[in-house]
Amino acid sequence: MTRWNADQRALREGLARWYDDLSDGHVERDEEGGFAWDKWKLIRETGILSLPFEERWGGLGQDVLTMMYVLEGLGEGCRDSGLSFSLTTTICSTGVPLEKFGTDEQKQRYLPRICSGEAIGAHAITEASGGSDAMRMLTKADRDGDEFVLNGSKTFVSNAPVADVIVVYARTRPDAGALGITAFLVDADTPGLSVGKPMKKMGLRTSPLSELFFDDVRVPKSQVLGRVGGGFMVLDHVMKREILYSFIVNVGEMQHRLDRCIEYAKSRVQFGKPIGAHQSVANRIVEMKIKLETARKWLYDTGQRLMDGENVTVDLAIAKLLTSESNLESSLSAVQIFGGHGYMSEHGLEKDVRNSVAGTIYSGTTEIQYNRIASMLGLGK
């Protein structure tokens, strides 16, 4: 069990005073499906975006576990899951790879704006034809002197409609496999880059998502993130933090949901006694508790192993799979426990179901995680 020190607890508790304002109107915003700029302004004021980055860029220099601990608090206190997702996307898609692989010039240009929330980040990986198979990406970047010319398209790009800078993964060598992919920092106002209309989706509706189209987009070689051909190294570094940071938010959401169900089960009387006294309801809540604690332990243990420099490929896959599936099951259980009230949108529980489905898809689907674990066990060869 991780024990948090006074400084870590203070960081998390300091965020708590923002929760009511961040959550206010979350059901209505979900119905409207738009990005809430006024809530993003509040996110900027909290300072949470600066936590994992070095002080010289305007950050607070906190480690992976501390960042996770604070994000878990955000999940527990903020009811706008889409807002939380846009926040972690900005941190992981752009800030994390910039700090690890960026040049001093790139860091000076972008990181202070990421830390302050002035700039919103996104990354463009998935393509319509390849889906989860990044090796099949067709977007290409051809060298032309001191520039690269990007052509192609990306889909399902979270934050794209509101992003200021996008990390674009494109093929620089068609015959080099993983070594043929390069990451580029592309400003949203670059000529030739066009952003599609926000896509309507099942959940996380307040986190906008769209396609991107590249028509002879010229990017200076100084905007290469990392090295030419090193895109998969960048992506691997990003995805480790994306899973830890995004899904620890889900753990916080699961904790809030569990607490809400316990309170309801104690106060809701049916057939002469609280529904929590019925074994079928009690067992469902106990199962929610077990899966919550299992997901929490896997994520924090994996975060610690990552900080220790260990190979966490299997750990991440297990943690991601466990958390995403448990979050979905937890949300369905909450609806069942609340009955007709849970089915009504005004209570926000059916929204939780729609939001949680996304977690079984993004950052590698459940099926991809099973395949990854099987591969590491030497199966399927």
Rank of each mutant, 00 (worst) to 15 (best):
L49S: 08
P52K: 06
F53D: 03
R56A: 05
R56S: 09
W57N: 00
W57K: 10
W57E: 01
W57G: 01
L65N: 09
L65C: 12
M67Q: 08
M67H: 06
M68I: 09
M68N: 04
L71H: 07
L71Q: 10
C78F: 08
R79L: 15
R79S: 14
S81F: 10
S81M: 11
S81W: 10
S81H: 08
L83R: 11
L83I: 05
T88D: 02
T88I: 14
T89C: 05
I91W: 07
C92S: 13
C92V: 09
S93M: 09
S93E: 05
S93V: 04
V96S: 04
L98S: 03
E99C: 02
K100G: 07
K100T: 08
T103H: 08
T103F: 06
E105G: 01
K107E: 01
Q108I: 01
R109S: 01
P112R: 13
R113P: 06
R113H: 14
I114R: 12
G117M: 11
G117W: 07
G117C: 13
A119I: 14
H123L: 15
A124K: 04
I125K: 04
I125V: 15
E127S: 11
E127M: 10
S129L: 11
S129E: 14
G131N: 10
S132W: 12
D133I: 10
D133P: 01
D133V: 06
A134G: 01
M135V: 00
R136G: 14
T139S: 15
T139A: 15
K140C: 13
K140G: 07
A141Q: 04
R143G: 06
F148A: 09
L150T: 09
L150K: 06
N151P: 01
K154M: 06
F156P: 04
F156Y: 11
V157F: 07
S158V: 11
P161N: 03
P161T: 09
A163M: 03
A163R: 03
A163D: 03
